[in-house]
Amino acid sequence: MSEKNGNTGLRLKTGLAEMLKGGVIMDVTDARQAEIAQKSGASAVMALERVPAQIRAEGGVARMASPKKIREIMETVSIPVMAKCRIGHFAEAQILQELGVDYIDESEVLTPADEAHHVDKHGFKTPFVCGARNLGEALRRIAEGAAMIRTKGEAGTGDVVHAVKHLREITGQMKGLTVLSEQELYAAAKELQAPYELVKMVAKEGKLPVPNFSAGGIATPADAALVRQLGAEAVFVGSGIFMKDSTNFCDPAEAERRARAIVRACTHFDDPKVLLEVSNDLAGAMKGLAVAAIAEGDLLQKRGW
């Protein structure tokens, strides 16, 4: 691949992420949910076998969704369709690319397939989004070819606390880099365990070289507004729309109300008047699971290297 082609590829990949900014990407497990998501104003959907709350509750090995199910969702909606592959599972990624999904999420929500390596994403035409808890992790994923970064948060909990933590961590570390001298950036790169060229780029621009979205525990319009105000350029909402609790789906009409409210909150994230209005109409949110009550070893966010 020539240098020009490589650059063209990355521009097309981040280009689609640009189109998703300000919007809400919703997890869906079938065509009917995908339709509700699109009707409610989702800018894209993530096709899954089970949403993170179910994966967490049911246990077992979580893998890429069945291509048949993903295809059914692709045929139902006109908005972009994303799907998840396991960390390091480049064969699942190859299958998803062949299937023609619009974005691949190399996700800690699924059971990792490699304990040391992530997918080499440069070799793919389909763009990748990856989770990160801090700037070093984000830059390592970008070095591997990720075209979009999202915070990991703690998926499937409905507790926004770690999405906030990771977003603050990443933005704080970026701010910190902007005041360092060129000399100091070498040590910073070593500390972040990230490539020097990317660290230098962030120090100069004060932001990531790819779009920076938020995910993991966002369950209400207020949660969406919170992460948007903290600098997230768009949000992923997983279990928060279609789940009543960790194992049961909520009523579809309720899901649609939640979806619409979160979409509006994402656009009007800095207008408390609208945020009140959209929050008023809701009967409640998913029951959720406090992240602080989860045993350290059960945290999904620790997956990824």
Binding site: M19, L20, G23, K39, G41, S78
Partner: peptide, 11 residues
């Protein structure tokens, strides 16, 4: 701008 026309319309 670019984005999703269904999302725009809905809004």
């Amino acid at each position: 701008p670019g984005g999703e026309s269904t999302t725009f319309l809905n809004f």
